[in-house]
Design a protein around this nucleic acid. Sequence first.
DNA 1: CGCCAAAAAAGTGTTGACAGTTACATCGAC
DNA 2: GTCGATGTAACTGTCAACACTTTTTTGGCG
Lengths: 221, 221
Amino acid sequence: MAPRQTDRVPRTASIVPLVRYEIERLIGCGELVGGARINESALALRLGISRGPIREACRELANTGLLQAELNRGFFVHEVNTKQALDIYDLRASLFGMAGKLAARVIDARQLSALAAQVEAMAQAIAAHDLATYYPLNVAFHQSLIEAADNYKLAQLWPLLEAELHLFRRRGLVQGGSMETSNEEHQALWEALRAGDDALAGRLAERHILAGKGRFLRSLD
Amino acid sequence: MAPRQTDRVPRTASIVPLVRYEIERLIGCGELVGGARINESALALRLGISRGPIREACRELANTGLLQAELNRGFFVHEVNTKQALDIYDLRASLFGMAGKLAARVIDARQLSALAAQVEAMAQAIAAHDLATYYPLNVAFHQSLIEAADNYKLAQLWPLLEAELHLFRRRGLVQGGSMETSNEEHQALWEALRAGDDALAGRLAERHILAGKGRFLRSLD
DNA sequence: CGCCAAAAAAGTGTTGACAGTTACATCGAC
DNA sequence: GTCGATGTAACTGTCAACACTTTTTTGGCG
């Protein structure tokens, strides 16, 4: 069961990113839930490595907000409460609005058609009621717009916010009914981008996330 | 010269944050400049500790953007080029605008008077042409407004952006002449906050940072 | 049976050492 | 003198072990 790597490969890659990815996966798939402690020794044994790289990976994850460090007690999966989730929504709204505004000024034809393809793919997923396909497409669309804004720090922070919010969302926050509305917003945003209307694109992008926040709020009841 | 700590204290604190702070200090005071490599062994010897905690601190700093990791070559002080500095200014403008908007809705009397005191202290520093006093007050004022916005993630990210921008600013970017203008903007922002005018406060806050970006741009010539 | 103290177990924080890689210096050929 | 190869030193990536702390278990007492 434990995939030990006994063979010592020449050092072409560090194992720290692998550990980091593994912990993110464990959180993503629900094997590690909010509040759970990371057992360094057990994880090291399971991955067939020592504790050093695990601790380094945990430090990174603690810094991004996925884990929290407690002295002499180790690293715990960060529990995101409702207030914090709403905080992150607000932040994402502000950043996505900024991305929309900036992207409208500098986006090129290739990026525009890539976005259009993603909107179209989402429309097909909606028609097929295929949420499993829709969800990653939705994430990718947002990511593409962020990258189109050509702000390195924004592109660096966005995925971290997504990951932390993911800790809360866990399951089924994207209701079936909201997908159509959401993709209509994508379409409108795309048209503002194509028109180069930065003020409109910024407004639409921000509202799009705030609409998501609204859906999130209603889903809490 | 090297402040070795030979006495073994009971474990009431981890040394990782201390190392992190030390590296930040070395960068801040210019002993480590952009592009420089962190010599783990030398730093360990100098601080009287082993390399483990140093590596963990570096991982954190790499994640915040102050350092960059290169396989088999270690950690390097991130060199922030002009484009990236401008990116960070844009991001700060967006976030500070958001902070102004949110703070105007929820700020209380105590926080308002604290901000007023900071504006007043800055005015005195300006009158005395005391840049060494003005600069930290300015940073603290921004920090206070961020905290008044009551968004935990925003409060978490803001100092990281400040630190990374600091890598570029290094010395003397706040020209003497701009302090008055800047503090007038603080004053106007404060009045919008007191009036509870969230839209105005948001606009003024964003413009304040963008004005800083403008001064930064002009100082490059 | 419940409760508290002491002992044992589990787990983190840190260290020093080893293996592999990169950077530097030395030496010879042209 | 310059260029390239070779050997050496310096340094990173990882590991295994130790010291200390926290948690759990055990055992005794009321």
